[in-house]
Design a protein around this nucleic acid. Structure first.
Length: 399
DNA sequence: AAGTTATGCAACCGCAGCCAA
DNA sequence: ATTGGCTGCGGTTGCATAACT
């Protein structure tokens, strides 16, 4: 037989969480770690379903969450990953590790989707709405090229997501939860409740007020300085090493002018990150290890659903099966590593756009079928979108 | 100033896959 | 082998606030 029901539907509270509930939940998770959500309401006295507790933790209370305005880099990442992956918010979120899939989804639905629509770009297909009119001037070719590149990038994203997950798991193997590892615990905290309060303070500090407009001070929490002012966007460009906690390559984001320059910094020593590496994805430890990835032989057997697979197949492009084979080829890795799609997000210096008359249209001399050529065309395509987005202030009539 | 509409976002709902009993 | 809970995920809803008339 199965397990007992996770929670009694009767008497389960719904709606916004109160600061008191947050404190209870954070304190409990600090002590026991996330997971086993069914036990949380029973052990804490919270009148909440375990599922609700999990959601509250995952989307709001988790300490490694960055809240607030999305940086330009993040917007670009979301737009382009959405073009590649569609509404696979969790997959997109793996490339913005400090953002939750829920937050990214909300931001897409409330901001980016509308913005693209006003630009005349179909937010679903990421193609111009008047695509038919452009079919004879190279746009369809660009679309096909995009699909071609999308295959590579989708494959790479899957691999990176796996590597990120695996790296987290490996780091978990060497770290324990704060209470079990006082040396790594918060320097100013000596009890679960106080550190929970700090964590909660951080979570609530990241917004102007608490849920339902409840001011942060309502929780009676001291305002600390745990909130990191650094806006970061993490990419897993480097495969993690097995016996070390992987350093996180991050782009310094919206907190300063660095967001424009895409400066990369090492974040391996970040206190908050360090402290909370023990949390995160520990729930599926066994499952994740069973799914372990051979770094030298990446597999995309699960979850490989490129957003525009039909287009790819129609264009005579590769199948997932061929991709599996292809990804064993060093050449593939080199192409993506040296000039990966993600890097395009940061290389806005290339100002060529479709409206320029298209450098790609003077390409007859090149080998039309080569990857390099495809790649350049795609680069132009995306740069044109990015330039359009970047050059249009949010308050312009365009938006 | 008051009422109405639009916007943003936290939270809920329901489904699918996985896995323990 | 079967059942059913747990978890992750994407879609949707409802409320608070902002913007507008």
């Amino acid at each position: 037989m199965g397990r007992p029901p996770c929670c009694d539907k009767e008497g389960v509270k719904k709606g916004p969480w109160t600061p008191e509930e947050d404190i209870i939940l954070v304190s409990y998770i600090q002590e026991h770690g996330p997971g086993n959500w069914r036990a949380v309401p029973a052990n804490t006295g919270l009148q909440r379903c375990g599922k609700s507790c999990r959601l509250r933790w995952t989307n709001y209370l988790r300490p490694d969450i960055k809240r607030g305005k999305f940086s330009l880099q993040e917007e670009q990442t979301i737009i382009q990953l959405h073009a590649l992956l569609g509404n696979r918010w969790s997959a997109i979120a793996t490339h913005l590790p400090k953002r939750t899939d829920n937050e990214i989804k909300n931001y897409w639905n409330t901001h980016l989707k509308k913005r693209l629509a006003k630009m005349g770009i179909d937010p679903v297909t990421h193609k111009p709405k008047n695509d038919a009119l452009l079919s004879s001037d190279g746009q369809s070719k660009n679309a096909a090229n995009l699909s071609h590149m999308a295959q590579w990038e989708s494959a790479r994203l899957e691999a990176e997501a796996r590597l990120v997950r695996e790296s987290k798991l490996r780091s978990h193997s060497f770290q324990q939860y704060p209470l079990a590892n006082p040396a790594a615990n918060y320097a100013s905290s000596s009890s679960a409740s106080s550190s929970a309060a700090q964590l909660l303070n951080k979570a609530w500090n990241n917004r102007g007020s608490g849920p339902s407009g409840v001011p942060t001070s309502a929780a009676g929490i001291n305002r600390g300085d745990l909130e990191s002012p650094t806006s970061t966007l993490t990419f897993s460009e480097n495969a993690p090493t097995i016996n070390s906690i992987p350093a996180m390559i991050e782009f310094v984001g919206s907190s300063g002018s660095n967001s424009e320059t895409g400066i990369i910094k090492e974040e391996g020593g970040d206190q908050v990150v360090q402290d909370w590496k023990g949390f995160g994805s520990s729930m599926n430890l066994n499952h994740e290890y069973k799914e372990g990835v051979d770094h030298n032989s990446l597999s995309f057997s699960s979850g490989f659903h490129p957003h525009e697979m039909s287009t790819m197949e129609a264009a005579g492009a590769w199948t997932p099966e061929s991709l599996r084979t292809s990804t064993n080829n060093e050449q593939v890795d080199n192409v993506m590593a040296e000039d990966g799609f993600t890097n395009l997000l940061l290389n806005n210096s290339d100002d060529r756009s479709l409206s320029d008359g298209g450098g790609g249209d003077s390409d007859n001399g090149g080998s039309a079928g080569s990857d390099d050529h495809y790649y350049e065309d795609n680069k132009n395509y995306w740069n044109s979108i990015l330039n359009l987005v970047n050059s249009s202030p949010s308050d312009s009539p365009m938006f």
